[in-house]
C-alpha cells in the first residue's frame, strides 16, 4: 500500500480528515507525523533561514520526522479558497521551500488550490493528484466527493457542536478523545482563545495554553467553534473586505467574541508572522474601542519561556476574577 506522509502542522488542523479520506479512498494510507517536540523544532530550524517563522520551522521538523516512514509527502499549496482572498506567502511557497530545505525527502505531492482560476482548474488539479494512485478518473471523482463530505461533517462538528479541531479529528477517526466533553458545572468563567489553529492546538508551540485554562476550570472557546458565515461577516464588519485566508481566525473570531458575553479574549500569535502582526493590531484597537471585554495578546517565539506565558495567563485570569469579585461585592 502506498503511504502518504502528512506533517502534523499548519494546514493539518483544518483539513486532515478530508485529506485522509481522499487518500484512503484511493487505496493509500495516510501517515501523520508525531506531535511536535523540541527535536523537531531544532532540526527544522537548522534547515531554513533564521527569519522563517516558528510554525514553518516546525513544519520542516515534521517533514524530517516522516522521512523513511512514507512514499510521498503531501504538501498542498492553498493559494486561495475565496475569491480575491489570498493566503500568506509562506503557505504559497511551502512545497517549494520544503523541496529546497529537505532534498532527501520522499517525492512531494503538491496540489494548487486557487478558486480565482475557476472550477475547472481545481478539478484538473485534483485529478492530477489522484493520478498518482489510480488511472481511473471516476475513482478520483468519488474519492474527492467523499473527502468533501468528510470536510463538511468535520466543520459541522466544530461550528455546531462546539468541538475543537483535535477533538473533531479524534471523533471523525473514531479514536477516543482524551478529555471528556462534559464541562464541570462550576465553570463560571469563559475565555475565548483566538489565533491560528496550528498555534492554538500544538501543545509545544502554545505551551499548553488551552489545557492550562481548562485545568483552571475555565471554559475555552476557539475560532473553529463559530460558523464560517459568522466569522466572515464579522471580518466584513471590521475591515470592509476579506484580504487574508486566515483573517477570520483572528479578526473574525476576535470581533465576534469581543462583542459576545465571554469574560476575556486572548490572542495567540507567532513572533515574526506578518499577517498576524497586522491582524492582532486590528483586534487590539477594536478591544480598546469597545472597552467591553478584557483582551490580552500573547506573542510566542521559539525562545519564549513557559514562565513568561504562565505569568501573563495568571495575571489575566486574576484580573478577571478580581473584577468578578468586585462586581459581586457591589451588587450583593
Amino acid at each position: 500500500m502506498i503511504k502518504v506522509g502528512i506533517p502534523r502542522a499548519l494546514l493539518y488542523y483544518q483539513y486532515y480528515p478530508m485529506w485522509r479520506t481522499f487518500f484512503e479512498e484511493l487505496g493509500a494510507e495516510a501517515i501523520v507525523s508525531p506531535v511536535t517536540s523540541r527535536v523537531m523544532l531544532q532540526e527544522g530550524g537548522a534547515r531554513v533561514v533564521a527569519d522563517t517563522c516558528l510554525p514553518v520551522k516546525i513544519f520542516i521538523g515534521h517533514v524530517l520526522s516522516l522521512i523513511g516512514n512514507c512514499d510521498f509527502i503531501f504538501i498542498p499549496t492553498i493559494r486561495s479558497i475565496r475569491k480575491n482572498t489570498y493566503n500568506c506567502s509562506k503557505f504559497l511557497g511551502l512545497s517549494a521551500m520544503t523541496r529546497a530545505a529537505v532534498p532527501e525527502a520522499p517525492p512531494i505531492l503538491d496540489i494548487m488550490v486557487d478558486v480565482n482560476k475557476g472550477r475547472l482548474r481545481l478539478y484538473q488539479a485534483i485529478y492530477r493528484l489522484g493520478k498518482n494512485f489510480t488511472p481511473y478518473p471516476h475513482k478520483i471523482r468519488q474519492a474527492s466527493l467523499d473527502a468533501w463530505r468528510t470536510q463538511l461533517k468535520y466543520r459541522y462538528m466544530m461550528s455546531n457542536r462546539g468541538l475543537t479541531q483535535p477533538q473533531a479529528i479524534a471523533k471523525v477517526l473514531g479514536t477516543s478523545t482524551p478529555e471528556s466533553q462534559v464541562e464541570s458545572p462550576e465553570t463560571k468563567t469563559t475565555i475565548a482563545v483566538i489565533g491560528h489553529p496550528y498555534l492554538l492546538h500544538d501543545d509545544f508551540i502554545s505551551h499548553r495554553i488551552i489545557p492550562r485554562l481548562k485545568q483552571a476550570n475555565v471554559k475555552v472557546l476557539t475560532p473553529e467553534m463559530l460558523a464560517d458565515t459568522t466569522l466572515e461577516s464579522a471580518v466584513m464588519k471590521v475591515m470592509g473586505r476579506i484580504q487574508w485566508t486566515c483573517e477570520s481566525e483572528i479578526v473574525g473570531a476576535g470581533e465576534h467574541y469581543l462583542r459576545s458575553d465571554v469574560d476575556g479574549v486572548i490572542n495567540v500569535m507567532a513572533f515574526g508572522c506578518g499577517p498576524d502582526s497586522l491582524m492582532m493590531d486590528v483586534i487590539r484597537r477594536q478591544a480598546t474601542r469597545l472597552r467591553s471585554t478584557p483582551f490580552m495578546n500573547l506573542t510566542i517565539d521559539e525562545h519564549t519561556s513557559e514562565v513568561g506565558i504562565i505569568t501573563r495567563l495568571e495575571a489575566f485570569m486574576d484580573m478577571i476574577y478580581r473584577k468578578q469579585r468586585a462586581r459581586v461585592a457591589v451588587c450583593g
Binding site: 513572533f271 478584557p294 483582551f295 490580552m296 506573542t299 517565539d301 525562545h303 519564549t304 513568561g308 505569568t311 501573563r312 495575571a315 489575566f316 486574576d318 484580573m319 478580581r322 473584577k323 468586585a326
Partner: peptide, 11 residues
C-alpha cells in the same frame, strides 16, 4: 480600583 488591562515587555 480594578485592573482592566496590563502589558509586559516581550523579548
Amino acid at each position: 480600583g480594578i485592573i482592566t488591562d496590563f502589558a509586559m515587555n516581550t523579548v
